[in-house]
Design a protein around this nucleic acid. Structure first.
Ligand SMILES: [Zn+2]
Ligand SMILES: [Zn+2]
Ligand SMILES: [Zn+2]
Ligand SMILES: [Zn+2]
Lengths: 168, 168
DNA sequence: ACGGCTCTGCTATAGTGTAACGTCCTGCCG
DNA sequence: CGGCAGGACGTTACACTATAGCAGAGCCGT
């Protein structure tokens, strides 16, 4: 695994063996679901696997297409329900600015996350930066605002894509 | 006007005379468009006025319905094109987590904004908190990420709605 | 086996956003 | 003045995103 954990490490390595990312994610998902007494059914597990097929955010209808490879093409509610479950368990996050979904590298504990989204390769990296959380909480408090959910999606260029134009 | 400017002031006052919010916003829009040599046509001005009809974020199809009051109901591209122009000029912001649009209280200068979104009354308040900008920029730099656009949307309860449940 | 629950499949429909083309209007140049 | 280029708007059609509502299948405790 090479997603950042809040201290130093950064974006995904281009040449990493991604199969292990998928296996790790599925193993963590099995664990948290067993601990919580919820059912990671084959369908839900398959959807999670597809979400993790890259480090990019995946669109619901792309999942749908990938699921329906065989004969009986899957219908929208199938994938949306699986995603709803996976989000409720913190196994995937929704990226609102992309209408897409990305796997969470740390589903075992509740956390507020920030996302770095590369406009070049599309890879998404999840941060858990206490400094951002603090700044946000302080500002909310200054406005007497009772914060319940922060959506922080940062668009730009990852180190590998730094050359190309800003974000056309 | 009573939207916060980055220092102390907070959420909108419930009993304020909102007509002046609208007039101020339209006057500012006239100014910036004249200065920039772009055309705030009657349609665009009308859409902006409708966006400012409350401090809530307004959905594109609600604008569409409000425009088409009379005979020839407006079509989607009409309002989306107007919104595209208004966003390009910084006169409105899009709230991605709501698929909706809100007027910007300070269209005269470029700024990165954060939004406080009340789950009770729906009102949206725009912040321009340097402390959040700094924390975000620092974290992006730590990851060698070239930041181009930050989306920060904070959901919760405004002071007046603080009682009700967290966000059902 | 029974009754309650969750998960899944299915149909249909709501909601959100764009492509592509044509017309009109406006400002500009010859 | 006449023609022209570009921008703004209308219109049609379509793509994409998401949910409601109902029916059948599977699981589980009693
Ligand atoms: Zn990987
Ligand atoms: Zn990249
Ligand atoms: Zn007001
Ligand atoms: Zn409120």
């Amino acid at each position: 695994m090479n997603t950042t954990r809040g201290d130093k490490p950064a974006f995904h390595d281009g040449g990493h063996e991604h199969q292990s990312c998928i296996e790790d994610a599925l193993a963590r998902a099995d664990d948290v679901c067993r601990e919580r007494g919820v059912r990671l059914t084959p369908l839900r597990r398959r959807v999670l696997e597809l979400v993790w097929s890259s480090h990019r955010a995946v669109k619901a209808y792309d999942l749908l297409a990938a699921l329906g490879d065989a004969v009986g093409a899957a219908k929208p509610p199938t994938v949306y329900r699986a995603l709803e479950f996976l989000m409720a368990q913190g196994l995937v996050h929704r990226i609102d600015s992309l209408n897409a979904f990305v796997g969470c590298p740390q589903p075992d504990h509740r956390h507020s996350a920030q996302f770095l989204i590369c406009g070049g390769c599309g890879d998404v990296s999840e941060l858990n930066a206490a400094s951002i959380d603090r700044a946000v909480a302080d500002q909310a408090a200054d406005s007497d605002f009772a914060l319940s959910r922060s959506i922080i999606e940062l668009h730009g260029r990852c180190p590998r894509c730094a050359t190309l134009p800003p974000t056309p």
